[in-house]
Nucleic acid binder design. Structure first.
Lengths: 198, 198
DNA sequence: CGCAAGGTTAGACTGCTAGTCTAAAACCTC
DNA sequence: GAGGTTTTAGACTAGCAGTCTAACCTTGCG
């Protein structure tokens, strides 16, 4: 994949719309050319095919997510507070780029075969969140977990799937209303304090 | 889609393997014929195309999940205990049918366009879990949540994504070891009791 | 200015595969 | 054994991904 010039990169989000609502399969390369205004020959000059266009869009969105998450993690608050900021950040990025996120999740299979994507998710999310979980144990704001890797995946999955179900059904995704519901579960847990623990 | 005879249905899981490790795209209908031993013409006699074969496999696995979840929900224990059983049930089904689950998640986009799948997930999971959450509030074992719909999605997402990341990386998925880590988060929450709440 | 290097594009072309169709066999069921 | 349905091989079509060519444009440099 050659370095993609900015004027072209700027037009690609139109392709994400197509991927999101018809799927990668039912989107012809000619359709992408028509929707973005970038001619087919030019697309092939820069990308090996549709999935590389998709991968390019993912990288971009994941970079946003990495930035937002990094900013949330570096704030001067308690780890618990920063964790809520991480959840908000993920929701904000998803609300911002609904088409790309839908396309991403709807084509995880394809994306999964592009190893950079897996790495990008790890770098953007898992690594910083695991570090945050550690710090939370140290500053006393978070409970220690036996397996921080799994905990990070649980968080990611909780946010991703709930946000996604809004996107998939074309309901508007409002981070402000969704975030408290998710955080209530992952921070306070579902078990009533009256119930005998573990 | 005609009623699929049992001898044919029994051979289809071989197709799930192909979908899971090459993706739907890179699996030719002839490959499916070769892998399952069901001739191409016969496949087309019963199914409109590959995605219908995928959909058929999903329905089957989701039916298992519905059964297992229903059983977990109907046990005579406290709602909190039954909720752990639901998580276990989902993990067990996923561990049992890794290829179908990988194919399902890797092709959610396609699947999403097949409305029966969305309905099947709702019936198999969301509806019973929401009911369970209600009962938990009544029997005092679970904390009330402001939005049970979101809570159900959080649970589903937490389990699905963590299980999936094992499947995707070809690590064996062992429900016994994963389940406690997930449950620790969703039942007890991440916030330390020392931290001032909400 | 003139020219080289590389970006950009139209359009023709190839190859592959999904999906259709036909028609023949095999299998039922009454 | 007649009349239906299922099963299958194999030929065929249509459409799309991806390649290639050759022209055209831009930019920068001597």
């Amino acid at each position: 994949m050659r370095r993609v010039p900015a004027q072209i990169a700027a037009r690609l989000p139109a392709a994400a719309e197509l991927f999101a609502d018809r799927g990668l399969e039912d989107t012809k390369v000619e359709d992408i050319a028509a929707a973005t205004g970038v001619p087919k020959a030019t697309l092939y000059y820069y990308f090996a095919g549709k999935e590389e266009i998709l991968a390019f869009l993912f990288q971009d969105t994941l970079q946003h997510m990495a930035d937002e998450v990094a900013m949330a993690v570096q704030a001067p608050d308690s780890a618990a507070t920063r964790l809520t900021a991480v959840v908000d950040a993920q929701l904000r990025v998803m609300a911002d780029q609904p088409a790309v996120c839908q396309a991403l999740v709807g084509n995880l299979g394809r994306a999964g075969r592009i190893p950079e994507i897996a790495t990008a998710i790890t770098d953007a999310y898992y690594t910083p969140v695991q570090q945050l979980l550690d710090e939370g144990v140290r500053d006393g704001s978070l409970r220690p977990t036996e397996d921080p890797t799994t905990t990070a995946m649980v968080l990611f999955g909780a946010v991703t799937i709930s946000a996604l179900s809004y996107l998939a059904t074309d309901r508007p995704l409002s981070p402000e209303s969704l975030s408290p519901s998710i955080l209530a579960v992952v921070l306070e847990g579902l078990r009533s304090s009256a119930d005998q623990a573990i």
